[in-house]
Each structure stands twice: as C-alpha cells, then as structure tokens.
C-alpha cells in the first residue's frame, strides 16, 4: 500500500514527476546531438580505418595462406614427381644392371665357347703332332733298323770275291772314263 502511494501523482507539481524538466530535455538533447556529432566526425573515421586495416590484415593473412597452400601443393607435386623420378631411376638402374648382366653372361659364354674351341683345337693339334711324332719316330726307327739289317745282310753278302770284283769294276770304269 505504501508503494502504491509513492507512484501516485503529486497535485502540487506542474508536470509529471516521472518526466524531466523541459530545459533539461532541451539541454540534454543539444548535448546528445553535440556528442553524437563529435562521435560521427571524429570517432567514426578512426573506427572505419581500424576496420579497414583489420580487413586488409585478414585479407593478407588469407592471401598468405593461399600462397602457403599453393607452395605446399607445389612441394607436394615436386615430391610426387621426385618419387616418380626415383621409381623411373630405379627402373633404369635395374634395366642397366640387367643389360650389363646379360652382356657379361653373353661375353662369358662367348669367351668360354672360344676357350673350349681353342682347347679342342690345341688338343687336336697335340694329338696330330703326337701322332706325327710317333709316325716320324717309328719311321726313323724303321729306317735305322733297316740300315742295320741292310748293313748286316750286305756284310754277309759282300764276301772277298765280291769286294775284289767291286774294286776291279771301279778301276776299270775310272780308267775308261777319260
């Protein structure tokens, strides 16, 4: 009941107690206009400038991020290319190694074949030489034995009469030769 009485109009007052005085409203309004105008004139440009700087900074950061992303993608591409190069290099090296191994194998086979051919030829030549040597030795031995046998046969055949006949025949032929 007491509170209700507080809000009740005082009949002694010229205006409602809840509203300000007219002068206060006027001065207050003027002051508000002045303050708002000052704010618009001085604070708003600074605010806009700060906002623009912030926007620019954010844009720069976005651009930098974009650049980093592009760099990262480029690096990733390089790495992928390098991986590809390594694979191709590995394949090339393997191919080279295989080629060298094939060449060595072929050369070894060729050399082995040549050596075997040489050995066969040498063996054939040795066999032929040994055979010829054996034939020669046999021929020589036969000749030697034939000579010995012939000498012995002749020694038995060439008796004194035959010897004298040979001497006389020689003297006769030489004497008649002039």
């Amino acid at each position: 009941m007491i509170n209700l009485s507080l809000f009740a109009a005082d009949p002694a007052e010229t205006h409602h107690w809840l509203l300000p005085e007219t002068a206060e409203i006027i001065y207050g309004g003027i002051a508000s206009v002045v303050i708002i105008g000052a704010l618009v004139k001085f604070a708003l440009p600074q605010f806009k400038k700060a906002m623009a700087a912030r926007t620019e900074r954010i844009q720069k950061e976005l651009d930098a991020s974009q650049g980093d992303l592009a760099q990262a993608e480029a690096d990733a591409a390089k790495i992928r290319q390098a991986l590809g190069d390594i694979s191709s290099e590995k394949a090339r090296l393997m191919a080279d190694a295989q080629a060298q191994a094939d060449a060595l194998l072929a050369e070894g086979r060729s050399r082995l074949t040549a050596e075997v051919a040489d050995m066969e030829a040498k063996a054939d030549a040795d066999i032929a030489a040994a055979s010829a040597r054996g034939s020669d030795e046999l021929r020589t031995e036969i000749g030697r034995l034939a000579t010995v046998a012939t000498d012995r046969v002749l020694a038995s055949v060439l008796d004194d009469a035959t010897q004298q006949s040979l001497v006389e025949n020689f003297i006769t032929k030489v004497g008649a030769s002039r």
């Binding site: 000498d151 002749l154 060439l158 010897q163 040979l166 025949n169 030489v174």
Partner: peptide, 17 residues
C-alpha cells in the same frame, strides 16, 4: 761297305756300296 771312293782335289769319284 764295298767299292771305292776316290778324292783328287775337289773331284770325288764315288763307287761305294
């Protein structure tokens, strides 16, 4: 072996077996 071989200077007359 048999027969004769005569050498006179550089001349050889060979009638040997």
């Amino acid at each position: 072996l048999g027969g004769l071989v005569a050498t006179v200077g550089d001349t050889v007359i060979d009638g040997s077996v």
